[in-house]
Every structure is written in structure tokens, then in C-alpha cells.
Design a protein around this nucleic acid. Structure first.
Lengths: 333, 333
DNA sequence: TTAAATTGCACAATCGTTTGTGCAAAACTA
DNA sequence: TAGTTTTGCACAAACGATTGTGCAATTTAA
């Protein structure tokens, strides 16, 4: 059913029908009687305007593209959830693209979404390459989680430095000295800031020489392989700091295989929280990123961008969740 | 840049340009020389046709709506992942709707997506109410996970009866008699079939009188509360069968609080697998649904529907993953 | 050389809306 | 009553693509 057919049914012009249905009856002086009748009949025939045609005419799709590296990672799944909710609340829908941590796919996704004339883009970039972000200046973009320091694209992220600093300090205060940090993708801002937080905490406590950063990927495999390698060293660390949830899972798998028990044989802290962490034996100490807030703020910023306002990047504080995966060890003299 | 401008640049009609760009040059006898030139210039100015306009003209959006109850549940997140991947491979994009287990939101989502003229719908329905599915007969729909027996809508699902039967039998063979089943939303097909599988296994083994089904929701809270209640009974069960991952998590939380140790004090099996289950102490025995296959098959069926073919519902076999959360107990005489 | 067939492209309608503008009829003013 | 203002609605042109059809120009056939 088109507006034309509806107009025919009503024996009036599409113009009038359209104006009533878009709530512009007063602006164009449609009589209340006519307006009533239009609404009534439209309702009865449950007419809904063709969005495609509207989009074409209005040059606006009320659609936002959401590009994330891996929706099966609870971190991003949670993000997607709040983003979808917020956008829907504001009358927009979301086109989802999963880039599988692949820069090419990310680039392709951006092109596809741009071709579909989305009103804006919410991107948790893979992070290694940023040039395609600069080529698409016409489209409002807000970055989430990972961002680019050398570029002027608004972003929302966790204060990764702070979180890592706090966690590392906690380990040190518990008496740990030999703390290994297993990192994710080097070169991406969250990773690098977490590493910096770790390093800074070590330095502050005079443990400059103990700094040990290994790994190169946000994956379980990376956590697994590097933990294995660390355990094989003559001076195995007394504590591990895994820079994301996947890595932490790899750590746990390796520890389990080698029969290293947490926290007696070794301590573990993970960046990123996950519901099951609480239920592990022992429960896993973690740094929780404020996912809900991140999603909400990202949408807010995007809307400000759409309204042509100036916006500022946002850095949100994470929460340190102390659980039983860290043991106190006597400080060696 | 519109096709009109491009045509002006080339000094020819939009007709010709369009025909070349849509690969119909032979059909309409455009000379190879002209075609070449069009492609060249289009490429140089990197022209991309406005999808909205195409959509309107072609009455087709190359977009599929994906409606799921909760993207933050790993089960659905994994589903979303494979669905997105498959659809992209076939040139479609996905509009995501999270219904938060709310029938009203589900209904609203369907209306929104229909208004946006998606080519088809992939829905993991909340499951309590199905009338809105019947009202939208015009749109190809494939149901995932939950479906409606009294209606003729194609679906893809796990063989829930089989999975539950197998798991329950396993417990019985290990010597368990007092096995409690904590269910999800009664009235939804997956739940009911799982319950039936449990019941059938009990009956087959002469344990008709031991059947104990409690609970009413696919949530952690439900698992938690009912476990607490079960433990408080004079005859606490020796094994729990949690009908999904969330419920299982609730069980574990309650068991932990009451200092019931798995598997010595009580055994636990979960319907649904999750990466972390393997890393628990002890690792959790689970029934794994073939998410990848489910996603792929759902997309396949949807495409057959789009091509106007007849399709059949699909029921896929789950995999039983035996781990250490079940203990053998001596059989009482 | 002329008629017929083929080649190469353009005109204009269409998809379903929204909206600037125009024009009667009704209401008001003097 | 004649002129002015207000009211109520419709015409037709966009938005940017695709496509059935028509019509010259060229090639082929006779």
C-alpha cells in the first residue's frame, strides 16, 4: 500500500496525506477534520510509508553503521547491546559489520556502509591502519575502544593506563616482583596504554629491571603460548597480567595444563571483566571497563556530531575488581 | 557524485552509464570502446551508485533483519557472527535488533524492519507469542532456535530432545537417580523438548518417580534461586541439569555460595557450551549446539525462500562434551 | 543501389515519498 | 458590495537510480 493508493481511497491528494502523516498539518493548514479522517483511514488500512522512498527524498536513512572486530567477544557483544538499545531509543537502527580483526574487511565495511548512506559510523577499529578513516571525512565517525592519536577523530575509550597502573600496583603491593605482562596487538592505543601503565607502575616501585612484556595478539592462543613460554623460563613469574579477556583465558588454559594453581603457584589479573570470571575457582581479579557507559557516550557523541556540534574525546575510568586470584607473597629482602 | 554527473562528464546518457556499470553492456549492445571509457572514468572519480535510489527502483534492499533476544549471550553472539559472515559473502548486510527477551520489542522490531523493506528476516523469537509472525506473511522469515509447532514457518534448530536425553542418560549411567532439571521458559519449543528429553530418559530407566523439573526462565537468577531451593530440600539432588548456559551459571554461583563442590558434592551438566566452561575447575560437562552450522543453514534456507523454493525445517544434532563435572556414584540397591 | 538487418545509444517513465508554490473558495474588512 | 486576508488543499518537481522502447546511423544482403 502506497501513499498514493491511500490518497485515492481518501479522495484527496498525496500531498495532504503526507503532511498529516508527518505531523505537519498545522504548518500547512490542513483542517482538523481532514487530518482526523486521514489518520483514521491510514490506521485502519495500517499504512506505513515506504522508508526507502523517504530516505531517498530526505537524504537520510536513520541508520548507523556499527563496525566491530568480533561480536563473539563478550566485550564487543556488550557494546553492541547498549549501542543498539541507545540508537533505537533515538529512532535509529544499526547495520552490523564484523571485521574479524581484519583491516581489509574494516575498510570494505566502511565503503559498504557509506554506499548505503548511513547517517554515521560507530567503529571499534582493528587499529593497525587508519588511512581509510581519513578518506571518509564526509561521514560522522566515532571511534570506540581503539583510536588514533595522530588523527582528529572523536573517540570514547577506557582509561587504559590508569587501569593497568592500578592493577600492577596492586600486584606489587601484594609482594610480587616478577610480574609478566602479556600484551595484545602492539601499536594499538589501548594495548600500548595498558603496557605503559604496567611499565610506569613497575618503575615507580623501583622494579624497572623486572619489566617483562611478551605477546602480540588479543587472542587466547597468544595468552596460551606465552604463558607456556614464561613457565618454562628458569625464573618463572609469580604473577601474570593478561591485557584482555581472551589472553587471560589462554593463560588459564596453559596454567591448568601445567598444573599451576591460581593463586598459590601463580597470580593472575585480567584486563576486561566477564560474567564467568566471578565463578571461577578462584574467582578472577579483573579490570572492568564501563561498557554500558562507553556505548551510551559513543552514541551521545555521535548525535552531537550529527547536530554539527564540536565534541571532545572521552576517557572513562575502569573499575578494579579484587577477587581471589592474587596471593600475597612474602617480600624477599 | 551521481550517475547524472558522471554521464555529463562522459558526455553520454545516464542510460548508457548505468548499463555499463551494472554489467548489461552486451545485453544492450553498448560498444566495448564506450564501455571501457565508462568504467575508466567511473573508476577514476570513484563513483558508487546511490544504494537508496537503487533500492527504491529495484524494490529490493539487499538487507536482512536479524532479531535476537540478547546479543550479550554468547550463544546468540556466535550466531550473529556466522550469520553476518554468511550474509556478507552473499552480498547482503544485516540490520540488528536485540529484543531483550521482550515480545513487544520483538513485534516492534518486525514492524520496523518490514518498514525498511528488508528482503528477509532471521529471527530467534522470544517464543511466547507468535501471532505477529502470522501477520507478516509477505516477508520471508526463518526462525532460529525457538520455533512454533502449530505454524508453518521454516526453522533451524538443535535436536534438543536428543541432547537432553543423552545428557540425562549419561547422568543415570553414572549412578545418579536424584537428578533435578532446571528449565528455561516453559512453553518455548527448545525448552519443552529438552524437558521431554530429560523426562523420557528418566522414564526409560525406570526413574519416573524421580522426575523433578523446576524453574521458569533462561536466566542466571533462575538458576541461582532454584539451585538454592533444591539444596535446601531434605533430599537434595545429586545432579543438576541446567537447560541453558545462563541457568548453569546461576547454579554454579549458588553451589559456590553453599560450598557444594562439583563434582564431589553434586554433579552438573549444562545445555549450551561456552569457551570458559572448559577452564572451570572442574571443567563443565556440556551439550554443545552447532552454532556455526545453525547460522549457515539458516542463511541457506532464507536464500532458498528468497528464490521461491520450498524449504524444510532443519534439526541439527548437538554434541555431548564430557568433562569432569559429573562424578560416578555407587548405585543404591 | 536499395531494402533489410544490425548496431549504438538516448528519451522518458518509474520506484514512493516530501515540499515549494499556486490557486480557488471561504471568511473577513471597510 | 468590492477588496483583502485567510483557509484548505492540489500540482508538479525533486531525490538518484534502472529499463522498455524508439530512432538514427551503420553494416549487410540482394
Amino acid at each position: 500500500m502506497t501513499i498514493k493508493e491511500l490518497a485515492q481511497e481518501l479522495e484527496m491528494s498525496t500531498t495532504t496525506v503526507s503532511r498529516v502523516l508527518t505531523g505537519q498539518e498545522k504548518k500547512y493548514r490542513i483542517s482538523e477534520k481532514t487530518a482526523q479522517r486521514v489518520r483514521e483511514v491510514a490506521d485502519k488500512l495500517d499504512f506505513a510509508p515506504n522508508q526507502i522512498a523517504r530516505n531517498l527524498r530526505l537524504q537520510k536513512t536513520n541508520t548507523i553503521g556499527l563496525i566491530i572486530p568480533d561480536i563473539s567477544n563478550p566485550f564487543f557483544a556488550n557494546l553492541a547491546r547498549t549501542v543498539e538499545e541507545e540508537l533505537r531509543r533515538r529512532g535509529k537502527m544499526v547495520l552490523l559489520c564484523d571485521t574479524k580483526d581484519d583491516t581489509d574487511l574494516e575498510q570494505e565495511s566502511m565503503a559498504l556502509l557509506k554506499g548505503r548512506k548511513v547517517d554515521g559510523l560507530l567503529v571499534a577499529p582493528v587499529g593497525k591502519d587508519s588511512k581509510h578513516f581519513m578518506e571518509n571525512t564526509s561521514l560522522p565517525v566515532v571511534l570506540i575502544d581503539r583510536y588514533f592519536e595522530d588523527q582528529n577523530i572523536p573517540y570514547v575509550t577506557t582509561d587504559n593506563f590508569f587501569g593497568a597502573y592500578e592493577a600492577t600496583s596492586f600486584l606489587i603491593e601484594k609482594g610480587h616482583r616478577n610480574i609478566a605482562c602479556i600484551q595484545g596487538l602492539a601499536g594499538t592505543t589501548p594495548n600500548d596504554n595498558r603496557v605503559k601503565g604496567y611499565q610506569e607502575a613497575m618503575k615507580t616501585h623501583g622494579l624497572m629491571d623486572c619489566i617483562k612484556v611478551v605477546g602480540d595478539d588479543y587472542s587466547m592462543e597468544n595468552g596460551y603460548a606465552n604463558t607456556k613460554e614464561l613457565l618454562a623460563r628458569p625464573e618463572a613469574p609469580t604473577a601474570l597480567f593478561a591485557l584482555n579477556n581472551q589472553i587471560a583465558m589462554g593463560c588459564m588454559k596453559a596454567l591448568k595444563e601445567n598444573e599451576f594453581h591460581i593463586p598459590n603457584d601463580i597470580s593472575l589479573i585480567a584486563f576486561d571483566e566477564q560474567p564467568l570470571f566471578e565463578l571461577l575457582s578462584p574467582p578472577l581479579t579483573a579490570i572492568k571497563q564501563p561498557m554500558e557507559t562507553i556505548g551510551k557516550v559513543a552514541v551521545e557523541i555521535l548525535f552531537e556530531l550529527l547536530e554539527g556540534k564540536k565534541v571532545n574525546p572521552q576517557m572513562l575510568k575502569p573499575t578494579f575488581i579484587e577477587r581471589a586470584s592474587v596471593s600475597a607473597i612474602p617480600i624477599k629482602p
